[in-house]
Structure formats: C-alpha cells, structure tokens
C-alpha cells in the first residue's frame, strides 16, 4: 500500500512497563498503516496491547522504540505541549468511561475543545448543538453527565470527538460500559458517520458488537498485530 496515502504509519513500536522487578512488553514491535477514511477495530483479549497501542497512536503515551507518523508528521519528536496541540487540532477521543467533564453540560462538553481552539462562542455553541442533534441528543443539551444515561454520555463523547473535525477518532472500548442495545446503537452511529462524512475511526474493543460493525479487524496478541481481516 502507498504510504503517502496513509493517515497513520507506525513501525516497530515497542512499549515496556515495569511491574515490580519484572519488565512486561505491552507492545512488541507493532507495524501499522491506517488509511484515511478507515473504520478499523483493534481486537484481541485483555492484555493484548490494544489500549497501549491506541494511547501511543493518540500521542497520550510514548513508545520505548519505533517510529510513528500521523498525517505526515513525526509525532514522536514533539514536545508535550506540541503533542497536546496536535491532539487538539487533529484527533478526537472516545474513552470507555469518565469521558466527560462532569461539571459541564452536554453542550459545554462538546464546545470545550472548540473553545480551546478559539472558535467564537456563537459558532461553537451552534456547532455543539448541531452535533448533539446529529448523534440523537437534541433537547438534552443542558444536561450534565450525571443526568444522562451511559449510552447518552458516549454519544456526547462522539459528538465532542467529531465537532472539531479531526483527522481521526480513537475510541477505547466505547461500548464496554453499555448494554447491548446502546452498544449497537453507538456503533451504528459511528459507522454511519464514517460512511457519511468520511471520518477515520480506530476503535479498540473486544466487544463482538464493535467487531461486527468494523470494516477492518486488526487482531492483536501479546503486543503484536497478528492478523488483519477485511483490509
């Protein structure tokens, strides 16, 4: 595959953690190319390295070895402030839990990233409301996270991730805390946004619902990518 068209290009990523005297390799030489517009699910058992890989691809963590280029930028040379800036302008995140800032309303949570980017108030509120409507939460804009169900909170996170029009959305076990109906609904929504708007998604999950929705499955085992299905 031509690397010029790749959104993510990772080579030989290694990440080790220390557990007491013992050193554990969470990633053991991962190579991954991900094209723009992908809807891929990183699958594998717990401890296979999905979240570690996602954190490194999201510049939330640094590898011990390897190279990583995102949108043509060598992000491993960035300072902490540059990485924060890169995440702000290029990436959207959906986490398993504690996704939202609990003292902000749904609208303010979506608008938060836009505010950091300096979008004028009227514009960011308009865009926040539009994205909340897009994910099916019209009318719930002023609710705080504790006034929303788990599924609704994840939808707010999706709206926030997409409101800033990132190059890629990284989602870590987004359906883990949801019932099967809410999980299916969330995956359907993300798949629809991928198809309709061309947003790139990389999702770490071992939930069959997520795997069913994937256009590509990236199978991980013991810190390595062992198979790619449906590429």
């Amino acid at each position: 595959m031509n690397q010029d068209h790749m959104l993510i290009c990772a080579r030989g990523l290694v990440r080790r953690f220390h557990s007491g005297q013992e050193e554990v390799a969470a990633l053991n030489g991962v190579d991954l190319d991900l094209p723009k517009g992908a809807f891929s699910v990183l699958a594998g058992r717990s401890g296979s390295g999905k979240t570690t890989l996602l954190n490194i691809l999201g510049t939330l963590d640094m590898p011990d070895a390897g190279t990583l280029s995102i949108s043509g930028r060598d992000v491993l040379t960035f300072s902490a402030a540059e990485r924060a800036d890169f995440r702000l302008y290029r990436m959207g995140f959906i986490f398993q839990a504690y996704n939202l800032i609990r003292v902000l309303s749904a609208r303010e949570n979506v608008a938060y990233v836009l505010q950091l980017r300096g979008v004028p108030k009227a514009e960011r509120l308009r865009r926040a409301d539009a994205w909340l409507a897009e994910v099916g939460l019209a009318g719930l804009e002023t609710r705080r996270p504790d006034q929303l169900s788990g599924g609704q909170q994840q939808r707010v996170a999706v709206a926030r991730a997409l409101a800033s029009e990132p190059d890629i959305v990284l989602a870590d076990e987004p359906t883990a805390n949801l019932d099967s109906h809410s999980g299916e609904s969330l995956m359907h929504l993300m798949r629809e946004l991928n198809g309709k708007r061309g947003v790139t998604f990389l999702i770490a999950s071992h939930d069959p619902v997520a795997m069913d929705a994937a256009r590509e499955l990236v199978m991980m085992e013991d810190g390595r990518i062992v198979e790619r299905i449906g590429q």
Partner: peptide
C-alpha cells in the same frame, strides 16, 4: 485525576 487526564487527552496544554 482522571478528569485532568481527560482534559489533557483532549488537547488542554499542561500550562492551561
């Protein structure tokens, strides 16, 4: 701590 982690993940700089 998780909230600060979330903010940082979303692109909030350490200085902010």
């Amino acid at each position: 701590i998780r909230e600060f982690g979330l903010m940082s993940a979303l692109g909030t700089a350490g200085s902010e």
